[in-house]
Design a protein around this nucleic acid. Structure first.
Lengths: 159, 159
DNA sequence: GCGGCGAATGTTATATTATAACATATCCAT
DNA sequence: ATGGATATGTTATAATATAACATTCGCCGC
């Protein structure tokens, strides 16, 4: 779904933006948080916490083996601050592609290539808002994950 | 969200309907599947697999202790046949309230009372369908879970 | 009835995902 | 430099889920 000519740039942009956001909000963008974010951005699809853990171990030997709580804390921080989203249907995490302009977003997740596209669509937000009202329901958080096949994958191979 | 005067009737109805559906489809509605479905229906909210496991153990001693795979297999069967839905954001399972007329549904989940209301809303389905088309995405499965506070809970106590 | 086949369940073990609880280190304002 | 808040280290374990193989059950044709 993504055709980044140089994915290094995607990662660099994400890190740079995170840096600025954290600075603006007086949050600490520590070494570990940066590395975890970088690893979340290894590709355009959701990444598992324990994969991050494994790669951190491999990556950096001056730090003694990183343990699960460390990774989950970093993911919590990044999630709370809108830099990363959790994909509940996959128990995995994906980098937020527009951490500044944020409303309720949803994800198109290709089960073939594994990429996830984050979208914000006023129609869907509107429809959700209306249905909440109709049911006298005070919505606080929306999980919307659409899995299927993206056009690239559908085009390139018979499914 | 639900005001069933006698929840026993809800359970009985769900079991009865499941029976009919399985019969019509030539599926085996075995003892275990029935019990698991019954326990999923203990209340109108999502139930955890291991809670079902515990209650099965307590319930029936002529069967040696039930093990996780047994419960998960029953849940898989019930889910595949539309009698139960998995709530990904909670790792829990809820009985389907209308297993026959089925399209893409979504859930309003009250984080206070824990109940989940299953809704089918053409506007939302339409909006999701449109956004899929716009992104040339072949949607296969939709997870839509809206958490918040239901009107009963908002009315009865200051949040 | 009975033999055989596929579906369902039993059983053991383990994989995967996530957090509790407490100790230590780091940051930074004063 | 020191104290309080924040972050990380560390140990242990909780919670969720499945792999793999053995056994039993249900049904169908004979």
């Amino acid at each position: 779904m993504y055709n980044c000519t140089s994915h290094k740039d995607c990662i660099a942009d994400a890190l740079h933006q995170a840096e600025e956001i954290c600075a603006a909000r007086h949050l600490r963008f520590t070494e570990i948080r940066r590395k975890v974010l970088e690893l979340v951005w290894q590709n355009h699809g959701p990444v598992k916490a324990y994969d991050i853990l494994d790669r951190l171990d491999g990556l950096d030997h001056r730090i003694a083996a990183i343990k699960p709580p460390t990774v989950y804390r970093a993911l919590d921080f990044l999630t709370e601050n809108g830099l990363v989203h959790k994909i509940n249907s996959l128990n995995a995490f994906v980098g937020c592609s527009h951490p500044l302009r944020h409303k309720e977003c949803y994800f198109l997740i290709c089960s073939d290539c594994g990429e996830a596209k984050e979208c914000c669509n006023p129609d869907i937000i509107e429809a959700i808002s209306k249905t909440s009202q109709r049911n006298e329901f005070q919505a606080e958080h929306v999980t919307l994950e659409i899995t299927g096949e993206c056009s690239d994958c559908r085009g390139s191979a018979a499914s």
